[in-house]
Design a protein around this nucleic acid. Structure first.
Lengths: 144, 144
DNA sequence: ATACTGTTGATAATCGTTATCATTTGCGTA
DNA sequence: TACGCAAATGATAACGATTATCAACAGTAT
């Protein structure tokens, strides 16, 4: 979960990481992206298009570090690759359009509560949970 | 969703597939397994151990065909590989122990209903949905 | 039994991701 | 400000899971 009042530099520092060129560029990119959910390959391509000489290995490494320090969240939808988004603190679930790939976020307190009850019922210590609804969005449902 | 009253042979036939040795063995294995959720590699290894000469490529192919014809369900938990289980019709969600890999199934009608409401709220046509709770099971939570 | 088409198995290829390692770079210290 | 060193980088090899290729083989309708 990030503190929006911290600058990129401060966020990276407080994650215990050196403030380097690749890390700054990647964090800026995530914060300025119009798409909330990006894959490593997408981040890499966007950097290349901005004439940044950042290797693919570095992109994967930095994204993983950002995830581990809580700057980013990683999601594994059923697409065969991970996508990342800024962790803004509020837990949410996803609606994913299988036609156009669009991702919509939602939060439902009632569902959250029921999930905790289920975990309790099975004597499970919840670490994380993910709920994704796959389907067709408004646009794709009708024409396209 | 499979009809339990159909024999393996009939299930394969009604999927529009030829009744072959590998398909029979794989379906039998799934139906007799004590573990409900198996990966392609696990199925392959179990076949090898039963002295079955079935190639890994065939295992992947058959599992995919069984999934497409509704005999199996495929799940992509956050483990990096797919697992398969017989589709018995009743939708359910999963509790996954990140320590021992144990998978527990549950069904909560209330959660189902709330998910439909969310989809409606966003004008989404639901095709599928998956809810997985990651954590530590009863055993792993305490000693191990 | 025959023929035709789907299926199989060995293996190469692919995809997303991680490991390796020589070179470079932040950054605390002198 | 220059120095030194551990941490970080980038090119690329390696990896694990899965899919494609293709010649040999096997169900099944006739």
């Amino acid at each position: 979960m990030i503190d929006e009042t911290l600058s990129e530099k401060e966020q990276i520092r407080s994650a215990g990481l050196k403030v380097t060129h690749p890390r700054m560029r990647i964090l800026e990119l995530l914060e300025n992206s119009s798409k909330a959910h990006l894959s490593a390959e997408e981040v890499y391509r966007m950097l290349i298009e901005s004439d940044e000489e950042i290797g693919l290995a570095t992109v994967y490494r930095v994204l993983t570090q950002f995830e581990q320090s809580g700057i980013l969240q990683r999601h594994n939808f059923e697409t065969g690759h991970s996508v990342f988004e800024l962790d803004r603190g509020e837990h949410h679930d996803h609606l994913l359009c299988v036609s156009c790939g669009m991702v919509e976020e939602f939060h439902d307190e009632q569902i959250e509560k029921l999930q905790h009850e289920v975990a309790e019922r099975y004597d499970f210590k919840t670490i994380d949970h993910s709920l994704t609804i796959y389907g067709n969005c408004k646009e794709c449902k009708n024409g396209r």
